[in-house]
Design a protein around this nucleic acid. Sequence first.
DNA 1: CTAGCTGCAAAGCGTTTGCACGATG
DNA 2: CATCGTGCAAACGCTTTGCAGCTAG
Lengths: 141, 141
Amino acid sequence: MSCENATAQVLKDSGHRLTPQRLMILSAIRHTTSHVTVAQILDEVRESYPYIDASTVYRTLGVLKKMRLVSETDMGSGEAVYEWINQSKHHHLICKSCGGVTLLEDRYVASVGSDIMEDHGFKADLDHFAIFGLCASCVED
Amino acid sequence: MSCENATAQVLKDSGHRLTPQRLMILSAIRHTTSHVTVAQILDEVRESYPYIDASTVYRTLGVLKKMRLVSETDMGSGEAVYEWINQSKHHHLICKSCGGVTLLEDRYVASVGSDIMEDHGFKADLDHFAIFGLCASCVED
DNA sequence: CTAGCTGCAAAGCGTTTGCACGATG
DNA sequence: CATCGTGCAAACGCTTTGCAGCTAG
């Protein structure tokens, strides 16, 4: 039993159909440690099923987004990245120089959210943040 | 003497040419209280000079970005927004429901930057942040 | 004069949409 | 068997690029 089985059930229960394509897309998203692009999903799925179309991936991601099973983040310039929403919130530090991605625990950001709520009544969506900058090794240059 | 004169001098000093188009683009950016899109710049400049091309605007913005005179922010889905970089840092709260934009003072975010630097050696670029969520009035629905 | 800027046109990119066929429940 | 999902193709919107002519310094 693979780990995306539970998700399959959730999809089914919500009135969506379970197709091979969707299972493969699901698998591609869950079998990465962090975020994926549509291109990466396509590459992976095409290894076993070459006829998958980008529109199918986008439409499936649309469903998963609406069900809050995946998050979409625009990392600026170009493709959006998608990530499985799980219990342990985290964020990403993206180096503008080398493109490296570091995980950042939620505690760095969490307090900001409650401060904003208190002062502005604004319910900030801080589930997944992309923070740009220069990583430790690139900052030396 | 208009307020973009100083900028004109900076451009000149850095070896760039001062063209009427650039002056008009400069004016369009500075004469807004907050951020502008390329489309808005085009609209404004075309009122006095209808032949301006989008590529000219993009190229000028590229120069201004490289000189750190304007910041580019991807507010997700669609056009990037550009903003004059000035002394008073701030961020934007963008309501996903009504699209309203609220200014957020820098102090909410500033401490996060130093924390990240301390723990990860990552120099986060937090000059201008776009924070999505639900504004006070939309959160009630 | 001559490097750099412009407008035009076209291409590029990620994403969305219309449509008829096929599969799911 | 009715609906929903798919692949294909084409369109979309924002942005970038090649190019020949023009212009600022």
